[in-house]
Amino acid sequence: MIELAGVGKRFGEHVVLRGVDLSVGRSEVVCLIGPSGSGKSTLLRCVNFLESYETGNVRIAGRLIGYEDLPGGTRKPMSARRLREMRREIGMVFQHFNLWPHMTAIGNVAEPLLRVRRLPTSEAADRAMAMLSKVGLAAKAHAYPSQLSGGQQQRVAIARALAMQPQLMLFDEPTSALDPELVGEVLEVMRSLAAEGMTMLIVTHEMGFAAHVADRIAFIDGGRIIDEGSPRHVFHHSQEPRVRRFLQTYHDRNSF
């Protein structure tokens, strides 16, 4: 479903991604972990071209995103319209929720259906309501984001992304901005999504979640994937010293 091959990106002098290879199969759940500044968020944002990448290929269901191949081996930037079309099939959930504050919860969820999928109002409303029920927030449909807790806002954000019926979902540290007691409700929604077979690529610090829900884990540092494999492999049997060091400090911090 997602194919990253040799993806590279730099910000001026600073090289953020160095030739990353990663693939996420249909219905697979892959978690990206690593220290801050490792490039994991940038990598995630390259998948829906919120960040542009310079070298390498990112393919969604086989189709290159961000660029169009030209005959003769070169490529040109993808047209805005095609990019928008591709983005419709990719759902994204942000660390800071990014709900639109001047719309209610149901307004937020229905907005993309109205503007992008161009559904009629009643159908958009029905689908939006169904999504809100799915994440357990039907009762809050007419509340504004400022009236919702962080966990509720994030669940609305997930509903908003899901309502578009995307082929895959990207999560950029979905629980990092939440108070600890609100994290669980969001992880629960993500867990059930995974169980239903959604293809998910998640950047997260929640190791417990990654360990139990991910099919595969990729550890990134310095713009490169250092190690990759099943949770069991990465957490317990990794041979890479950087991975072990990262997990060690994590364990130290979290065992009381």
Binding site: R87, M92, F94, H96, P112, V116, M164
Partner: peptide, 17 residues
Amino acid sequence: PAGQIEAAISVGMAPFD
């Protein structure tokens, strides 16, 4: 906030919308 614009971009909203 840039994040609100990014959310709109990520669902494929057109610039006018």
